[in-house]
């Protein structure tokens, strides 16, 4: 039995035109390069990758904040760009990384959370107030905290406000872009637990973007590893963490410093050449840093080798 598809991304490509300076020629930066994936209803797809790999772009495409240069995105069977903005807001909502810049510092918490309801323009004042109060309580904020300004709250509390604002319209899908990266570890755990609880209770689907592999392992049912605009490996979470196949996935996992004393800092074996999204290498885009690259890796483009629930893009895996 397979769950119906919540998010479907087909052959999506997104390029940006970037100008370095006044006199330099604009360059094409490929943020997402022919990526296809789907997320079943109730699933959590974790997307991991390092800065500049383009991992935030799929989030913004799925939210309809950006238009893909090619390809198609459907959310719950509807083309996201063809949807009316209000309908889209009822279906899919974001939670962003930085609760310090994503909340208006001059608006009281309860008004921030009420905004999406008011924007719909169909609810009366009393209903809005009850819905906001319910939502604040649901994310663990008191009625008194609802009357405060975001600047008077801690980082964790602000992220709770952002979650309340995202969920107040009862969306089906939430796109979380690094939702805990700005938080301390003790607070990060609170927010991750809250997100997990809400997903279970409300039957939500998450696209969860993070650079923190441990966090992704905790929340995601499936993980996609992104490198320079492509998903180089996608597997069910257990498989990916137990048997990573792509050399980049292996290096990422090896770089995680678990709190185990005596092990020292691992040598991840990646060279110093850092990836540049404006200058994607031919062949396998990972080959300049790959510890096991062969000559053909710089020429041949690796095909997708399918796996149950995913696939790997590497010439050197069977």
């Amino acid at each position: 039995m397979t769950a119906p598809i919540a998010i479907e991304v087909k052959g999506v490509r997104k390029t940006f035109l970037v100008k370095d300076g006044l006199l330099s020629k604009p360059r094409h930066v490929v943020a997402v390069d022919d990526v296809s994936f789907s997320v079943p209803q109730g699933g959590v797809l974790g997307v991991v990758g390092e800065s500049g790999c383009g991992k935030s772009t799929p989030a913004r495409l799925i939210l309809g904040l950006l238009e893909p240069s090619a390809g198609e995105i459907t959310v719950e069977g509807q083309k996201i760009l063809a949807m009316d903005r209000k309908a889209r807001a009822r279906l899919i909502q974001p939670v962003f990384q930085d609760p310090f810049s994503s909340l208006n510092p001059l608006t009281r918490v309860r008004d921030i959370v009420a905004m999406p309801l008011i924007a719909q323009g169909t609810l009366d004042r009393a209903t809005v107030t009850t819905r906001v109060e319910e939502m604040l309580e649901r994310v663990g904020l008191s009625r008194e905290q609802g009357t405060r300004l975001p600047t008077e709250l801690s980082g964790g509390q602000r992220q709770r406000v952002a979650i309340a604002r995202a969920l107040v319209l009862r969306p089906r899908i939430v796109v979380c872009d690094e939702p805990t990266s700005a938080l301390d570890v003790s607070v990060q755990a609170q927010i991750l637990n809250l997100l997990a609880e809400l997903r279970k209770d409300l039957g939500l689907t998450y696209l969860f973007i993070s650079h923190n592999l441990a966090v992704v392992e905790h929340v995601a049912s499936d993980v996609a590893v992104m490198y320079l605009g492509r998903f180089v490996e996608r597997q069910p979470t257990e498989t990916l963490f137990a048997h990573p196949e792509h050399p980049y996935t292996k290096a990422l996992l090896a770089s995680v410093l678990t709190p185990e004393p005596g092990l020292g800092v691992p040598d991840v074996g990646l060279g110093d050449t850092l990836p540049d999204p404006a200058n994607i290498p031919p062949g396998c885009r990972f080959h300049p840093r790959c510890p096991i690259a062969e000559p053909r890796c710089s020429v041949e483009r690796p095909p997708l080798k399918p796996r149950p629930g995913g696939g790997v893009e590497c010439l050197l895996v069977p």
Partner: peptide, 15 residues
């Protein structure tokens, strides 16, 4: 601290 490989996904993290 979530530790990769030692995560029980259905359990809440300690906080």
């Amino acid at each position: 601290v979530p530790v990769p490989g030692k995560i029980q996904r259905d359990q809440p993290l300690g906080s």
